[in-house]
């Protein structure tokens, strides 16, 4: 028995296809994803204004673009940006969750990349787990990030590395709950973590470079550098949010 391989000419499918987990598991994570997106849409409102809304739209388009760029990690294996830490640092976790979810929906509907019934698991892994892990690490290191440019780049790198590995672990959890079979859980765990530790290095480099570039031109558009405990240096008076 053989099965057709769904691969594209230049770019292979990048996200979970349909059928990798059973229907109840797919449905359950579909509900998780919908709940997370409803919550995110409500909480995102306060992070969105006339300036951050267009920024968030462009960040979303940028993640779509960079996700197309698979980079080699091992002979015969590649990786690509997931973008969780990137969006969390630039536009915050709630808006960021929506950014990644929009990318995944566009990819699934327009580009047949990522299954339709797998949207729930893909959104859970990359838009929810990846974004919030990246955000949590970045916030934990916020003092480092604000101290110097090197600190900001290091924060972005570490947050992105961890967002990649934990998002991969989320797939392992889904496979443990309702995987369709074909490989043992131990094999899946070891391979997913190992490969995504390597991919995470690339994710870290891309995230640090992007955050660094935005911060050097428009530090006021970097969410992590705003917020609690207003930044004294990096933000001139034009920065929003500072109580008048």
């Amino acid at each position: 028995m053989t099965t057709a391989v769904p691969t594209g000419e230049h770019i292979t499918a990048m996200h979970m296809s349909d059928g990798l987990v059973n229907a109840p598991t797919a449905a359950a994570f579909g509900l998780v994803a919908v709940g997370a997106l409803v919550l995110a849409a409500r909480r995102a409102r306060r992070d969105l204004d006339d300036r951050t809304a267009p920024m968030a739209g462009l960040v979303t388009a940028f993640v779509f673009a960079v996700q197309m760029i698979n980079f080699p990690i091992l002979p015969g294996a590649s990786g690509h940006l997931l973008g969780g830490a990137l969006v969390a640092i630039l536009v915050g976790p709630w808006v960021g969750t929506l950014c990644i979810a929009i990318v995944l929906v566009v990819q699934a509907l327009l580009f047949a990349d990522g299954g339709l019934t797998a949207l729930g698991t893909n959104i859970t892994n990359m838009a929810v787990v990846g974004v919030f892990v990246g955000y949590g690490v970045a916030v934990a290191l916020r003092r480092v990030a604000r101290r110097s440019r090197a600190g900001l780049l290091a924060t972005a790198f570490v947050a992105a590395l961890l967002n990649t590995v934990v998002a991969a672990l989320a797939f392992v959890v889904e496979y443990a709950i309702g995987g369709a079979g074909g490989a043992s859980l131990g094999t899946v765990l070891v391979l997913m973590v190992g490969l995504h530790a390597l991919i995470g290095i690339g994710e870290g480099v891309i995230t640090a470079a992007t955050v660094g570039a935005v911060a050097s031109v428009r530090p006021d558009l970097v969410h992590l550098l705003r917020g609690a405990g207003a930044e004294p240096a990096g933000a001139p008076a034009r920065t929003e949010g500072s109580p008048a």
């Binding site: 691969t7 230049h10 292979t12 499918a13 760029i69 294996a77 690509h80 991969a168 997913m192 991919i199």
Partner: peptide
């Protein structure tokens, strides 16, 4: 872009 399978694939 690399056309090799990504980490998950």
């Amino acid at each position: 872009a690399s056309s090799d399978p990504d980490g998950l694939d």
